[in-house]
Design a protein around this nucleic acid. Structure first.
Lengths: 165, 165
DNA sequence: TTAAATTTTCAGTAATTTTTGAAACATTAA
DNA sequence: TTAATGTTTCAAAAATTACTGAAAATTTAA
């Protein structure tokens, strides 16, 4: 398969995958493009490669920076900003885990916690409510702990863990 | 906190969480409602509780059944269909992992595989392309293997794994 | 300073996804 | 059968989300 075809295929697939995990398509595509770039590139390059507007490019680049998975670079004698992605996949996974944990697991844990002191007249439904939300919280806490360990470890730790299984 | 308030809060939070993980809000809310129900309920009940249309209820109930996380029940002497959720959170996690693996990880693995035999004139970009997509595939395969093991094990295995860490 | 280059913002538009509601379809009871 | 009850489908509407493009803001060079 020719490079250009493979590249487009990968960018497209990465966009689609992102979409089904709640990440907007353009954001994932910009990330894919940067993963493949041998050197850091400008907003103009991204606009041109993905055929998107300046506003769209700018917003999604910023979102990627907020997620901590790409970064700005300044080149000597250049006024433009350049961007590059971290090519270390383990680092990427760690960063994504960290952010999703913070943005999504923590809020649901907070709600599950708040909701634990429920009261009411129907014994059975109260019991069921506490049981289900309690189980959910227990499970979430376990996942949360695992992710915490994961985000603080190196790829080696994860690799060993997989072996132990 | 009063039961009705806690219930609504939980349903709302579950819907929001679903949304940020690419699952539609109503689908997640129906699931939350069923998790809290002490007995199986009808489409009418769901429509009434969540204030949604029949079509919407029907479509999302079907989606939940497709995901394998709720099921139909027929009651003796009743023509209506009743629905109930599996209350076992481990089972839920296992089922969701299984489905997402099939729907999302497998497709991306297929693309990464296809794209491996890339060719072109620019040595550096080909090398980088192979490196990045190869790493990504390696990582995805590891996650895939872990999920496979997870979906085929019982909660006890997972619990032990967490202890070993 | 002023001007040129670059980045950011955001109102309006477009695209996508979700929801409705009514009609078609299916099943069971009489 | 026919009628009543219940389920599914799907075109249209609504809601949400993403994108554009131009103007405003910011930064740097002269």
């Amino acid at each position: 398969m020719e490079y250009i075809e493979a590249k487009n295929k990968f960018i497209q697939a990465w966009g689609t995958l992102g979409t089904s995990w709640g990440i907007n398509k353009t954001m994932a595509q910009i990330h894919a493009l940067l993963l493949l770039s041998t050197e850091s590139i400008t907003t103009e390059d991204i606009m041109q490669e993905l055929q998107i507007s300046r506003g769209n490019a700018n917003m999604n680049i910023r979102a990627l920076i907020d997620w901590g998975i790409i970064e700005k670079e300044h080149k000597l004698g250049e006024r433009k900003e350049f961007f590059k992605a971290d090519k270390d996949i383990w680092e990427l996974a760690r960063q994504v885990s960290k952010e999703r944990r913070r943005r999504e697991i923590e809020p649901i844990l907070r709600v599950l916690d708040q909701v634990q002191d429920v009261s009411g007249t129907n014994e059975e439904e109260i019991k069921e409510f506490k049981q289900v939300t309690g189980d959910l919280m227990g499970f979430s806490l376990k996942i949360d702990g695992m992710l915490d360990k994961f985000t603080k470890s190196d790829s080696n730790w994860f690799y060993k863990m997989l072996l132990k299984l």
